[in-house]
């Protein structure tokens, strides 16, 4: 049962920022999948919740030849079903369509996931793997600078994610090895190739935060094939080790999932 808080429904993004600025222990509320869960367990105790749910303009998907931009309050289900996303970056649609379960996908949002930066969430892998740009109420932040640590981002406490811009890759794939109970990513690997020699590999679930795997990137830049990915020995150093998987097993899964993501990127199917 949650601690008491005040519920704030701002009229505009500026309003929302003002509310966050006014109360130091205020938190923006997006879909609430992570924040409300933490509050129920009394692991989070904001004094104010600033509900972004009714701000027009924070949800929606638009694309051009170079990139697609997805509003922060766009739900996972809408990203998964979007013809724009499915055409431009099918791997992103598949990723969104496999977050949590369908009930969660009806509430959870891109912005909420990215701002929360759960080390085992799927979206951060796509943001980092697709060289995304996080557009906030005040600035643009490149994905390489955004994810700082465990639940830690470059966002200021009163800063709100408005949208994320994803670079269109030549091809991309995402493969997740789910935790047996929570179904979060025990290891999730997003691979994207942006023309010859330019490959990004982002790994979620395996470490304290989402990160790029340099060895895989280098190897795949030379030859973008599953065999190459499988052959890369990923280091277990710094990876998470817990009851569900040791660091060593996670490291192994990184290269297996990378290989499968590459295979998918080369021959996409509707399901992961």
């Amino acid at each position: 049962m949650m601690y008491e808080f005040a519920y704030v429904r701002p009229a505009s993004l500026e309003d929302a920022v003002r509310a966050l600025r006014m109360h130091s222990e205020a938190k923006p509320l997006a879909g609430g999948m992570s924040l409300l869960s933490a509050m129920k367990l009394r692991l989070a105790a904001p004094t104010h919740l600033v509900d972004l749910g009714r701000l027009d303009g924070l949800a929606g998907i638009a694309g051009n030849n170079q990139a697609i931009t997805i509003g922060a309050m766009t739900r996972h289900a809408d990203v998964a079903a979007s013809p724009i996303v499915r055409e431009a970056i099918p791997a992103l649609a598949v990723l969104a369509g496999d977050i949590g379960d369908r009930q969660v996908r009806h509430r959870g949002t891109l912005g909420g996931s990215v701002a929360n930066a759960d080390p085992a969430a799927c979206y951060p892998a796509a943001v980092l793997g697709l060289a995304g740009t996080i557009i906030t109420d005040r600035r643009h932040i490149g994905s390489d600078d955004f994810f700082r640590g465990l639940y830690e981002t470059a966002l200021e406490t009163d800063e709100i994610v408005a949208a994320v811009e994803f670079t269109r890759p030549a091809r991309a794939g995402y493969m997740k090895f789910p935790h047996p109970a929570s179904r979060f990513a025990l290891v999730g690997v997003f691979v994207a190739e942006f023309g010859a020699g330019n490959v990004r590999v982002a790994v979620t679930g395996a470490g304290p935060r989402v990160f790029r795997e340099a060895r895989l990137e280098a190897a795949l830049a030379k030859e973008f094939t599953p065999t190459v990915a499988s052959a890369v020995a990923v280091s277990a150093e710094g990876l998470n080790s817990d009851r569900a998987a040791s660091a060593e097993y996670r490291a192994h899964l990184v290269s297996v999932m990378a290989a499968r993501a590459v295979a998918w990127a080369l021959a996409p199917t509707s399901q992961s």
């Binding site: 609430g32 999948m33 409300l36 869960s37 129920k40 009930q103 509430r107």
Partner: peptide
């Protein structure tokens, strides 16, 4: 706790009444 909110199945334990 799954119910439909505006035609979508959601978990009503992870949603505020205010939302």
């Amino acid at each position: 706790c799954t119910v439909h909110v505006d035609g979508d199945a959601v978990k009503s334990c992870t949603m505020l009444t205010a939302q």
